[in-house]
Nucleic acid binder design. Sequence first.
DNA 1: TGTACATCAGTGAACGCGCGTTCACTGATGTAC
DNA 2: TGTACATCAGTGAACGCGCGTTCACTGATGTAC
Lengths: 182, 182
Amino acid sequence: MRYSDDHKAATHTRIVRTAANELRAHGIDGIGVAALMSKAGLTHGGFYAHFESKDALLAEAIDAACEDTFTRLQKLGESTPAAERVDAIADAYLNTAHRDRPDRGCAIAALGGEIARLPPKLRGQFEQRIEALLSLLDDDTDTNRELAIQRLSTMVGALLLARAVRSKTFSNEILEAARAAI
Amino acid sequence: MRYSDDHKAATHTRIVRTAANELRAHGIDGIGVAALMSKAGLTHGGFYAHFESKDALLAEAIDAACEDTFTRLQKLGESTPAAERVDAIADAYLNTAHRDRPDRGCAIAALGGEIARLPPKLRGQFEQRIEALLSLLDDDTDTNRELAIQRLSTMVGALLLARAVRSKTFSNEILEAARAAI
DNA sequence: TGTACATCAGTGAACGCGCGTTCACTGATGTAC
DNA sequence: TGTACATCAGTGAACGCGCGTTCACTGATGTAC
């Protein structure tokens, strides 16, 4: 082999990671193959050595974005006492830093509407990530799934609104109101 | 004048209404000028007699979709006793019929993520529609803006999740949990 | 150890296609006489 | 009332452009001798 064994795998991962960020920043239709490869430090021609099609990359990148979201909140949960876990997650989620960096943030809030229009297979993939997130939002004492769903809904909805609105004041007010609810 | 005075205005409105529906069904980037005009019963060449550009149409259509959302919920609110108003709105919003017809439904849940990436001017337009919606979700007795924001966040987030998820069972569970929260 | 060869990740020109946009034209209808 | 004309909403061919995709090629590196 020409390059070291995992050279190609590393490039593949780099493209997927780049795409996961670009996707959240510009939407599923907002990212072209040439621009993406350029962001990853390559030229567009090499793309098809790594992926069968743009759609195949999108499937991987959407899942990577969801995994990223989950992993961040999970780590946060692990480094926090059980009693404060839900509050810590809500604080990390409903703040201005997260609002202003959608490319590194929650894939549900950034891409939810577009994912809803995707074929069932991709939505199934997405669904599993949601389930995983819900388990982080259970109360530790008694696992209340309904409450977890309500919390996730409020968080996602509030972040979506806070990003869509124009005025910073109003946007901050939305984040604060949602934090108070959880 | 060749046609009756309001002939052109009626066609303009028809195009905007068609676009407002297609937009919610397929996303802001999911709709082409030719396909849209065809849906409105016209050919694509006539488009520029009505709009300066596709972007100009989008601005009108996004606002029309938001207005549609607001008007529906407002009418519902008016035909319901004040004490039950918020519940009636939540029931109308968080049900399977609304989930399964995004083209006629809430523009925030369908387009929120894409609106967040739009230029400030359009987000300002959107913001005013949000403010109007909040006034419908106040408690009638004492106007509690924070509560209204929490309710709207939960409703929008839950609808988004219910549409993005694959399994019908899970989707229904989300709607029900959110209804219980309000 | 040094040289010739094979591999294959990555390059960049080229493709067909669909998009937004333009424009010369049409033809149904209102107006002028 | 009937005819000739003017208007302009709508038509459809054509445009340039950017996109996803293909492909002949390159050149850095691992392997064989």
